[in-house]
Design a protein around this nucleic acid. Structure first.
Lengths: 198, 198
DNA sequence: CAGGACATGTAACAGGTTACATGATTAT
DNA sequence: ATAATCATGTAACCTGTTACATGTCCTG
């Protein structure tokens, strides 16, 4: 005997999104490419397949909307069953996600390959995090100029954005720490005369 | 026509580990349950299956070691091909891993369920991060008392640990920020006038 | 008329997860 | 005796990834 712990998947991210506003698969795909996608990524194939499964389960229903000028679309909305499932899942403890950090594996293995190549790779990651951080900062300034005044849904959105900002800033700082240490180690003290650049 | 980008997997984490020291599947499983497991988790089934595949590919070889007192074991070591593959992979850009943050989904959906339950969940996560952080800090003090003196492999290990510390501290701080804001919003100013929640 | 946005899918494959399975030795 | 550790696997399933596939309308 055994209690199967329900593993979070795309379903719940879709339920949250549909609870905020009904949408077609295509529209959901775009949401998962921007706002929601910043903390839960999914492709259109994944979304269509999952929507089909959720329709079977009864968590969502859809209406076919005929559009004279564009292709027909199925607009999905969350059902009562879906709302119940969402409430249930929100109250349930989340499993710890597996740690999988490819950059850490590379740094750990740096002495087994080409150290300058690993340094370049860290620089690349630093740039990606800086770019993403800037995106987040822009959204923060634009959409949440007065955080202290926020409440309810807007506050929740802001807090998620804050999580993204902290994550990106943290990774960026880590890259800087690693770069400084690895560069110093790569071209150690040539006495006082120097060139320890590269 | 199409260039298939090689996606990082467990193989490279195993190559790094075996390059440091040869090991049986069982020993690797234990490593992936502690040191390496802090940044790349894997179960024994995954490891055995992957070792079998890597043996076919020629990245590792093994010797059967007969032990009088214990079951026989296969001790795997990295081959020349494996070392070449590792060097190749280290120099190759890593794909950005998909963002998937279940806690963020919950916070984003907090207004659709039971807010106090979501707050409890954040408290749970805060505790998990605090515990993990303490583990890391202990290792840091025990194994790296003098970081400035590090170089080579020891430095790389230290930097990976620093990444873990930054990640856990960052998540912990985020939990604190979210808890403070959500608690204030959950039980708003009963002070002079009102409740402006919802 | 070509390319991009709109709109929805199928199929094959790779990888991770869970359950099941076996069997020895050592310590309590 | 019973559990823990040592040691290695198979099988089924689920999810994510990649490639392939189809068709409309609008804009330049």
């Amino acid at each position: 005997m055994h209690i199967s712990v329900y593993v979070m998947g795309l379903e719940h991210a879709i339920l949250v999104s549909l609870a905020e506003k009904s949408a077609s698969g295509y529209e959901l795909t775009r949401r998962f490419g921007r706002s929601i996608g910043f903390f839960w990524e999914a492709t259109h194939q994944q979304i269509y397949r999952t929507l089909a499964r959720m329709t079977e389960t009864g968590w969502v229903t859809y209406d076919v909307i005929e559009q004279p000028d564009r292709p027909d679309k199925k607009v999905y909305r969350i059902s009562n069953g879906g709302q119940a499932e969402l409430a249930r899942w929100l109250a349930e403890p989340l499993e710890r996600p597996a740690d999988r950090d490819g950059l850490a594996v590379k740094i750990r293995g740096a002495s087994l390959g080409d150290l300058p190549a690993v340094i370049s790779e860290i620089e690349r990651h630093r740039a990606m995090h800086a770019e993403r951080l800037e995106t987040y900062r822009t959204i923060e300034k634009r959409d949440f100029p007065d955080p202290a005044a926020l409440s309810g849904r807007a506050l929740h959105q802001y807090l998620v954005l804050r999580g993204g900002i902290r994550t990106e800033q943290g990774r960026l700082d880590w890259c800087d720490e690693a770069l400084e240490a690895l560069r110093a180690d790569n071209s150690p003290d040539q006495a006082d005369t120097n060139r320890r650049s590269e």
